[in-house]
Amino acid sequence: MTTLSQASSVSMRAEQTRLERRYAHLGLLLIAPTVLIFSAVIVYPLISAIYMSLFSIFTPTLEGKWVGVDNYVQLLSASEFWWSLLNNLIWTVGTLTLQIVFGIGMALVLHQNIWFRSLARSLILFPYFISTVVAVLVWKWLFNDLYGILNHLMMSAGLIDMPIDYLGDMPNAMISVILVGAWKYFPFVVIAVLARLQSIPDQLYEAAKIDGAGAVARFFDVTLPQLREVLVVIVMLRAIWDFKEFDLIFLLTGGGPIISTQTLPLMVYKEAFALNQLGMASAYAVVMMAIMLFFMIVYIRKTREKSA
């Protein structure tokens, strides 16, 4: 006799079976290490960062004094903060734009059946995976004012008469940083766009061809609308990552000349370990996070929508 009965129970409370509870316990057990590590190295530090920003802390001794919101008041009235924010925006917008435009272009090229396609893809992908340290060393050597190949090539092409100081002058420094950033990170856009391109059904292009659309019209009417969704996600993600970029700028220019390429992450580092103001640095970090929060929420919403 096999019976399945589900008579409505008297109590409204949904009672879990013992098996269900056992599964839930096992689930919690499996996630426990993650939760522990998260709490210890992410949640706790995040909260203490906010707490620290209310103190004045001298880095070498780590001795602190409660100052309340003084750090924030001071920060918002400092012109260096606003300059750093402006630099941060210029850097983010500049390098992001180049990454997107160049990334889409290269993805379209690699989507075609070009010679040695997989080799081409590897070559394009490589800058993204190498260490920023390596990228910076190589570019510093290329940028070298006396023996750098870049100056040599531009001079022999007659573009310039004198060697250029790529990293020590303005606006050269900002342009160089933006270009190197674009070079290093555009492969991310290439791969992401390429993956999406490969999933656009061929029928769409054939239909457009039958309707008499040329190559350009096909790009704007078929390709771009299909890419729109993935592009929004890519832009958000890269905007967040570019905004918080530290290594590349710090290693290339150190924020210089003076503070012309100093972005907020560099400012945080400088306050904490050059000016030894750990509390003030925390305040900078918190403000920076607050600015990023906007993008983060938009991105999280977007990915939620998709998974829902």
């Binding site: 096999t2 019976t3 399945l4 009965s5 589900q6 129970s9 009672e15 098996l19």
Partner: peptide, 23 residues
């Protein structure tokens, strides 16, 4: 639910006269 892959909010499942909800 019979297989034990999902759970009824209430009620009993019997197989061969045996309540299997917790199995």
């Amino acid at each position: 639910m019979l297989a034990g892959l999902e759970f009824p909010t209430s009620g009993e499942i019997l197989i061969g006269g045996r309540v299997v909800n917790d199995l």
